[in-house]
Amino acid sequence: MMKRFPLYPMLAALLGATFFILPLVATFYFSLKMTRGELGFAAYQSVFNSAAFLKTISYSTVASLVAILIGAIIVVPTAYWVRLKLPKLRPVVEFISLLPLILPPVVLVFGYIRLFGSNSWMPLTTSTLGTDVLLVMGYVVLSMPYMFRAVDNGMAAIDISTLSEAAQSLGASRVRTIVSVIFPNVRAAIISGAFLTFSISLGEFVLASLLNRPAFGPYLVQLGQDRAYEPAALAIMSFGFTWCCMALMQVFATRKPGQRWLPFPNSRPATRT
C-alpha cells in the first residue's frame, strides 16, 4: 500500500517554521543594511566597537557566572539531600524552586529594595558591591527553576542512594561523596542548568534596571531606543549565542565519561564487550 504524503503535518511544520524563521531572516537582513545601498556587517562592527557594549557584556557575564556558581552550590547539595534523605519533601522543594516563574521579577526586586534599602538593617543598596550582590542573588533566584529541574533530573538518572552507600562503604565522608561521586555524575545536568542560567541572566532587564546596574539587559533596551540597526545585530547575536548554549548543552548531556569530544578516527569506541 502506498504511504500517503503527510500533507497537514507538513503544512503545520512549514507554518511554524515560517512564523519562527521569517522574522529572524528579516531582522538579519535589516541588520546588514546599515550602510546605505549595500549589505554588510557595519552594525555588528559598530556594536563591537562600542565601549558600553563591552563594559555591559563583561559585567553581565561575570554576574551570570557568579550566579551559576552560587546556584550550583545551593541546588546540588539540596537536591541530593532531598532525594536521599527527605523524599517526602521533594514536592515542597520543587514548588519553592518554581516560585520565580509565578512571581514576576519586579516583585522580587521591590522586595529586595524594601528589605535591603537604606533604612533597613542590612542596607545593601547603599553600596555598589551590595547592589551587585543583590543582583547576583536575584539571578540565582530567577534561574532556580531551571537549575533545580536540571540537577534533579540528573540525579534521577543515576542511583544516587546506592552510589552514596558504595562511596561510604569505601570510607568516604558525606562531603567527599558529594564532591567525588555525585557532583561529577550530575555534571552534565549542572552544565545544562548553567547554560540556561547564563542565557536568562545575560539579557535580564528588570532586576538590573531597577537596581541601576550597568548590565547588558538595560543596555540592549537603551540601544533599541537610540539606534536602528545595532539592536537588530544584537538580536541576531543573542539568537546565535542561545543556540550555541543549546548545542553545548546537547554535547555535554550526551557525552559519556572517557569519550573524546570529537569523533577522532582513533578514539576508543564506547561499546560493551
Binding site: T162, L163, S169, P257
Partner: peptide, 13 residues
C-alpha cells in the same frame, strides 16, 4: 567494611 551491591554501583564517572 567492603560492600558489593546487587546493582554493581560502580562510579560511572
Amino acid at each position: 567494611i567492603g560492600m558489593v551491591f546487587q546493582a554493581y554501583a560502580l562510579f560511572p564517572n
